[in-house]
């Protein structure tokens, strides 16, 4: 069976995609049924008008540039949902927090006797965006409710305070000390800037793996902040605590990061001690470690202070 012009017309009209064609003066010369249904603009009303006329509130800049490139170098243009969200403002009330249909748009050149025409193809990706948003919200919520950090899987701050209160109560009864060490990765923000956040995540995970392979089973390791970690060492005095902290510091300094050329990893650490003869609250214990860490930074980083 030969597909004739009539059939092509039918195919274009009923594809589940937005299709419209602009002539060299950017007037609409073709407007398919999907566009009629979604925009509520009839074909007769659309033909002969520019997109700017049809949608005065539309952000024109990127779309106009895309059409200009079609006319100049006949180059297909991609207008991604990631960067643009949508091109044609089509209200959407299906999902909360998504006011307009999210679109992946591509513009293609069509040759005609009067020059290059622009075929605009619109794909509705609202469902995908909603799904992605939902998963992000769920992941956020799970992280808040759990005791574990989503990236590194070690304990998080929520766990820390509950654990430390219990541990201090036990240490009072058992008459033993608790050493607290706060680590901070030196120049981590610079590494993030130079290599990107994905690389930053890898660096954090690498540090966690190193610590997990070094500490005792009775020690508890917590992600305290972006690049700050706390190591809680029950039954440990300040001398032994600082020895362990230094061991970790040296191991981290010696670690080679093959994927991040030029990155030299070091960390700074500050220690504090809870002892029965000088009991402090959990907040005070962490604050003291933080102050010691600050001194380590002031001393030039890559050192341990207590």
């Amino acid at each position: 069976m030969i597909i004739n012009d009539f059939l092509y017309e039918e195919i274009f009209q009923y594809l589940p995609l937005g299709l419209f064609v602009l002539d060299s003066k950017c007037n609409v010369i073709f407007w398919n049924e999907w566009m009629v249904e979604k925009t509520k603009i009839k074909k007769e009303h659309a033909i002969g008008k520019t997109i700017g006329n049809l949608f005065p509130s539309m952000k024109h800049e990127r779309f106009n540039n895309a059409v200009e490139q079609i006319q100049t170098v006949a180059s297909p243009q991609v207008l991604s949902q990631t960067l643009n969200h949508y091109i044609i403002p089509i209200p959407s009330n299906i999902y909360e927090k998504i006011d307009y249909m999210q679109q992946h748009v591509e513009v293609f050149p069509l040759k005609s006797k009067l020059g290059w025409l622009a075929l605009v193809v619109i794909q509705d990706v609202t469902d995908n965006v909603h799904q992605k948003n939902t998963m992000m919200q769920m992941a956020s919520k799970l992280e808040e409710e759990s005791y574990h950090d989503a990236l590194t899987a070690i304990y998080n701050r929520r766990f820390l305070w509950e654990y430390l209160e219990q541990q201090i109560a036990q240490a009072k009864r058992g008459n033993y000390s608790i050493c607290c060490c706060m680590f901070d990765l030196d120049y981590f923000k610079k590494a993030n800037d130079d290599f990107g956040h994905s690389a930053g995540d890898q660096i954090l995970t690498s540090f966690v793996n190193l610590i997990n392979g070094t500490v005792r089973s009775s020690d508890v390791f917590v992600r305290y902040g972006g690049e700050e970690f706390l190591l809680i060492m029950p039954h440990t005095d300040i001398t032994d605590g600082s020895k362990l902290a230094n061991k970790i510091r040296v191991l981290w300094e010696e670690k080679i990061h093959a994927n991040f050329i030029g990155y030299k990893s070091t960390c700074s650490a500050g220690l504090s001690l809870w002892k029965p003869k000088n009991p402090v609250s959990s907040q005070e214990l962490v604050d003291l470690a933080d102050k010691a860490l600050y001194k380590a930074k002031e001393k030039g980083r890559n050192c341990v202070v207590f």
Binding site: N65, V78, S80, Q81, T82, L83, M135, S198, D201
Partner: peptide
């Protein structure tokens, strides 16, 4: 910073964005 997206999803977003940037 999209720590809540899986690595695969974050990469898909990046690729889509870089494709458009390169195209431009």
């Amino acid at each position: 910073i999209t720590p809540k997206l899986t690595e695969k999803e974050a990469k898909a977003c990046e690729q889509e964005a870089v494709l458009e940037i390169g195209n431009i």
